[in-house]
Design a protein around this nucleic acid. Structure first.
Length: 348
DNA sequence: GTCCGCAAACGGTCAGTAGC
DNA sequence: GCTACTGACCGTTTGCGGAC
């Protein structure tokens, strides 16, 4: 059966293609009864707008590009699983609009920039969503230079404002560190994302601020940066536990790193919750299944990714970026006791 | 003023035609 | 038979104009 078009609806209803087009877009210039008649006919024929035809006329693709990072560092890892949830959230947000999602997998920063060039130059999408904002992010500079709508999952250091959704990483790291300090921990380590990521700086700053507020000197040896993978968590844990003055508490940047740290603890015969305490960041609530389940600072990924989609639609409508910036504070989920057994919390 | 039709326009593809 | 060119076509939007 041939695909329904405006022409076939015009033929079925007896109206011109122009009237059908206006009616389908809900134009007030079309009488309500006519509009309903045409919309009912469209529904009966299973009409869906043809994006190629739409692009032909409007020079817009009605597609939103989503860049998905597929890092070689994450081979044999679960990192990236959350992208399915992110895509689902964005998809929910754009449902009902004319926009559809196009997914582009990206291996590294250079590939991301090349892909953005292609998307912009070849008109493959009208807007783009991506995550993992970096210091002096060239992707953001390029898109701003081109005036191309975009939303980032993560803030940036760009002087020119742009739409974003982000976890307040600085506050999350500050809260986690302050919580551990209040519970008597003096040696607190931070397993952090790579240094070139903006949120790694924010986490480090929040951690450092909390230590300073608690009268504890910042020790760079207690900060372990690396890819946000279980492997990094495992290596970091082993390195930290080999220290002469080892930490009594460790803050992990995500669930994968926490899982790696737990695995490292099992390998070394270190009992988490007694010998050392872990605190994680969580967006999938998977930490509840870890043994033992750590306390986490939780950010609902469904809500944040829906916002990404909503902000994208607003950016495409030309809404001022100042109205499409959201920093979300994580909520603490308390699980295992965060205080080691008496006498085991170590001091400087 | 309301409602609707007409026709042009967009960029790429492909069939048809002319010339060699 | 090959190449070069022309024009119709695809689906949709939209400005303009006509009928009532």
């Amino acid at each position: 059966m041939a695909r329904a078009t405006i022409k076939s609806i015009a033929k079925k209803t007896g109206y011109s293609v122009g009237t059908v087009s206006n009616a389908l877009r809900g134009a007030p210039s079309v009488k309500r009864e006519t509009r309903e008649e045409i919309q009912n006919a469209a529904s009966e024929l299973g009409y869906r707008v043809n994006l190629d035809g739409l692009k032909l006329r409007t020079n817009k693709s009605y597609r939103i590009a989503v860049l998905v990072s597929v890092s070689d560092n994450a081979a044999d890892e679960w990192e990236g699983v959350e992208f399915t949830r992110i895509l689902a959230g964005i998809s929910d947000a754009v449902q009902g609009s004319r926009y559809q999602l196009s997914v582009f997998s990206i291996r590294d920063g250079d590939a991301a920039l090349r892909t953005l060039h292609t998307i912009v130059q070849e008109g493959l999408a009208d807007g783009v969503i991506f995550s993992g904002t970096r210091v002096n992010d060239q992707r953001i500079a390029y898109l701003q230079d081109k005036g191309f709508p975009f939303v980032t999952y993560g803030m940036s250091d760009s002087v020119e404002p742009h739409p974003y959704v982000d976890l307040d990483s600085q506050a999350a790291a500050f809260d986690a560190t302050a919580r551990l300090l209040a519970l008597g921990h003096k040696r607190i380590a931070l397993i952090n994302p790579p240094d070139d990521l903006i949120y790694a700086h924010q986490r480090r700053q929040g951690y450092s601020d909390a230590l300073s507020a608690g009268g504890i000197e910042f020790d760079p040896a207690l900060v372990f940066p690396g890819p946000t993978t279980a492997k990094t968590g495992q290596r970091a844990f082993a390195a930290l536990m080999r220290m002469r003055n080892r930490p009594s508490a460790i803050i992990c940047a995500n669930e994968a790193m926490t899982l790696g740290a737990l695995s490292g603890a099992a390998d070394m015969g270190v009992q988490v919750g007694r010998d050392v305490v872990l605190i994680s960041n969580d967006d999938l609530k998977l930490s509840q299944y870890f043994v033992p389940p750590p306390s986490t600072y939780y950010l609902p990924i469904g809500e944040t990714s829906r916002l990404l989609g909503e902000f994208m639609l607003k950016a495409l409508d030309g809404v001022d970026p100042s109205e499409t910036q959201k920093k979300i504070r994580a909520t603490l989920i308390e699980r295992q006791p965060d205080t080691p057994a008496p006498g085991t919390a170590q001091t400087n």
